[in-house]
Design a protein around this nucleic acid. Structure first.
Length: 743
DNA sequence: AGCACGCCGACT
DNA sequence: GTCGGCGTGCTC
């Protein structure tokens, strides 16, 4: 630090204003800066531009305090305070701080994920002019009398009048005595803060649908508790009208002048739902999801922050959008795993939605036809209230399930004889068939029939998948691909064979079996070109397609009314998985898939091909219902002391060599032992199931404890030590709290 | 995360 | 003898 700064400090007051700043970089500590401009104040959560190394960075104020002068030459000064006041509320500041602590993820990075990219980069907030012009459009020379019925403008006017004295006439003349332009300019210069009231009733353009008894009860119950925090699990079978319940509750929230966030899984964010919301409500609605541009998401964020918009429909990260007047958070399809972020800041939007509801003291509604076991357990523990919708709108009956035993059956391209017969019968009735297989490509293995050589990925520990469509072999883990071989590179034999089945192969088989029927294959490969999925869905709904074949991408969001036969070609992979979540996910998939088909007059049939026809949980699911399944599955979890009856954290590591990955986790294991926590289970280090991926060796260490608090207390001590571990070889590690994919 | 410093291979 | 590879370490 140059000498002149020293003399500068000495001439100042004996106190220094030191600000703790969270910088979005992967370190677990904060950085101290001086606030040298005495006229400035900083609020927690405000963005600041600070010198960092040889660069400048945007950080977030954590706290600031006056400290007695200590000759500390290491501190630099804040260059610029970008937000006054902060763009997020104090409640949200607390919420984000909590999230950082819970997920053991650096505070600066957590803050960064809550802000749109432009704001992370330091864009200064320009209060959107277009919005203000919208306000002024209604009349040219309003006076307070005329503003009686325009509370928003009245508020703006009154605020302006109180500030007016402080302004010069010249300043006002500059704006042609137009109070609105002048007020806008003030807001623009951040001299005036406007708090907008949300659009008041009438809120809805299209009248609500009439609710059935159950719906009405749910609506009444929810409306009664709108003013405080509560969590409600709305368990409603497909077609029971959950969305109508949401909408009627939302209407109440809007009439109270408050805002709503509706979170949806990645794939389900369909234009249909948006259209339905737009038809119903006349208030401003915003969207936030990955298919929008960064600037669109930024606009949505600001609209909610400013209170111009009243409803936000979005995915996972839309949860962090600030609200001028928080009213309600809805998370639909709460069981969906896309609510868990799987990279970087590995948060669960579902769990964080509940915490945000707690910090903001607003209700949270979780909805699903197949609630997660965690949520049902929380109902059991009376942490959540359960509301059930079991009546289907209309007269639709539940589909009929059939477990098809395929042991000792010869399969033709993945299809058993009884299934083929059912398909024939369905097609004869001119109804559609929907087939699921969660494996892309032609076959997962290319093997030499004479020497048993297998085509393997050079970078991963897996076999290459045959794709005849593109005439290549492709690795589904790292994307590596090479041209298809025609003779064995080991023994030169030309007897290369395929093993196993993928959607391409099933498609080929279907063409052979049903040459006079149209088949449509929908997977990531066949829908690569933009719009092709939409075109295929259109053809299906027009009845131009007889057999639909697809991966799990079809299980959500889409509905096929003309389908009366659904078959899952291979459920066993779900039953044999080492991950204890697999059976829960399979059950949810089965019920969701069943909900894709039929409606009203045509009841559907769902066939599951399996080699485990007597699997107890599967039998309960099909003979009884999802809730019975869940009850039994939870009993099994309790027996095994697995979540939600215990709590887990997974430490993952990867490195270029196996040794350095293992060495790191061994050191971690040693640190854990030194901390000597009672009843802590440590599993590993073990290789991750796909240990070698894209040239890196992945290993993991699973920590489990019966008490969440104890596990957190351990991590509080352990994580800072992880940052300090020094190894000769470079490794990358991460912590996953409440992991959902253990493998 | 960036970005600089630092020690080993193919080039004027 | 240098240019540059990315491996390591630091940022208030």
């Amino acid at each position: 630090m140059p000498f002149h700064s020293f003399s500068f400090l000495m001439t100042q007051s004996p106190y220094l204003h030191i600000v703790k700043v969270a910088i979005p970089i992967p370190v677990n500590h904060l950085f101290d800066y001086l606030l040298t401009d005495n006229s400035l104040t900083v609020q927690p959560g405000a963005r600041v531009l600070v010198p960092f190394g040889r660069n400048k960075k945007i950080g977030f104020v954590v706290n600031s305090a006056n400290h007695e002068v200590k000759p500390n030459f290491g501190l630099k000064s804040i260059i610029k305070v970008l937000d006054h006041p902060a763009l997020i509320s104090h409640d949200d500041f607390q919420f984000l701080s909590w999230a950082s602590r819970y997920y053991h993820y650096p505070l600066g990075e957590v803050f960064a994920t809550a802000f749109p990219v432009a704001l992370r980069k330091g864009k200064t907030v320009q209060y959107s002019q277009t919005k203000y012009y919208q306000l002024s459009d209604r009349g040219k020379c309003l006076n307070p009398q005329q503003l009686k019925r325009s509370p928003k403008q009245k508020q703006l006017f009154e605020l302006f009048m109180t500030e007016k004295q402080a302004l010069s006439t010249q300043y006002l003349n500059q704006y042609d005595k137009n109070w609105r332009s002048a007020a806008n300019a003030l807001v623009h210069k951040q001299l005036l803060t406007i708090v907008y009231d949300l659009p008041s009733p009438p809120v809805n353009t299209e009248p609500p649908l009439s609710a059935n008894n159950q719906q009405q009860q749910a609506i009444n119950q929810l409306i009664q508790q709108l003013n405080h925090f509560s969590v409600t699990l709305l368990a409603g079978i497909t077609g029971s009208g959950k969305t109508e319940v949401y909408m009627q509750v939302i209407q109440q929230v809007l009439e109270g002048g408050k805002q709503v966030i509706v979170l949806l899984p990645e794939i389900t964010l369909t234009p249909q739902l948006e259209a339905r919301f737009r038809r119903r409500f006349s208030v401003q609605l915003s969207l936030s999801h990955s298919r929008l541009t960064e600037s669109q998401r930024h606009t949505a964020w600001m609209s909610m922050q400013q209170g111009h918009s009243a409803i936000l429909l979005g995915t996972r990260s839309a949860l962090f959008t600030p609200l001028q007047k928080p009213g309600l958070i809805i998370l639909d399809e709460e069981h969906d795993s896309s609510f868990k972020q799987q990279q970087g800041f590995r948060f669960s939007a579902r769990d964080l939605a509940i915490m945000r509801g707690k910090f903001l003291d607003i209700p949270v509604i979780l909805g699903s036809a197949t609630p997660s076991l965690e949520s049902l357990h929380n109902v059991e523990k009376r942490r959540y209230q359960l509301l059930t919708l079991s009546e289907r709108a209309g007269q639709a009956s539940q589909p009929e399930f059939l477990l098809l035993d395929i042991r000792n059956q010869s399969l033709m391209n993945g299809l058993s004889k009884p299934l083929i017969k059912r398909i024939q019968q369905t097609l004869a009735k001119k109804e559609q068939v929907l087939l699921f297989l969660n494996r892309r490509g032609y076959a997962p293995v290319l093997i030499c029939h004479s020497c048993s050589w297998v085509a393997r990925c050079l970078h991963c520990e897996t076999s290459l998948v045959i794709h005849y469509d593109d005439n290549i072999l492709r690795c589904h883990h790292c994307g590596h691909q090479q041209s298809l071989l025609h003779c064995c590179p080991d023994c030169q034999a030309t007897s290369l064979d395929s093993l196993g089945i993928g959607t391409e192969k099933v498609e080929k088989g279907l063409h052979q079996l049903f040459p006079n029927h149209s088949v449509c294959r929908l997977d990531r490969d066949s829908t690569k070109t933009k719009g092709s999925l939409e075109e295929n869905l259109r053809q299906i709904n027009q009845g131009e397609i007889d057999i639909i074949l697809g991966t799990q991408m079809l299980a959500k969001g889409h509905h096929f009314p003309q389908v009366t036969l659904v078959a899952l070609l291979d459920v066993d992979s779900g039953l044999f998985s080492i991950d204890f979540h697999a059976i829960e996910k399979l059950a949810q998939l089965i019920i969701q898939v069943a909900g894709r088909s039929g409606r009203a007059e045509k009841s559907g049939q769902v066939i599951l091909q399996t080699r485990q026809p007597h699997h107890p949980l599967l039998t309960i699911l099909l003979k009884e219902d999802y809730l019975s399944f869940a009850k039994n599955a939870l009993a099994e979890r309790q027996q095994a002391q697995l979540p939600p009856f215990s709590f887990q954290a997974l430490i993952r590591v990867y490195a270029k060599t196996e040794d350095s990955s293992v060495l790191f986790l061994q050191q971690v294991g040693g640190l854990i032992q030194q901390l000597s926590f009672d009843n802590l289970q440590v599993l590993g280090p073990v290789p991750a199931p796909m240990a070698k991926r894209a040239g890196y060796y992945h290993f993991q260490l699973l920590l489990q404890h019966s008490q969440r608090r104890s596990l957190q207390a351990l991590l509080d001590q352990l994580v800072p030590q992880l940052y300090a571990i020094k190894l000769t070889q470079k490794i990358r590690w991460s912590i996953d709290i409440d992991p959902i994919d253990l493998y």
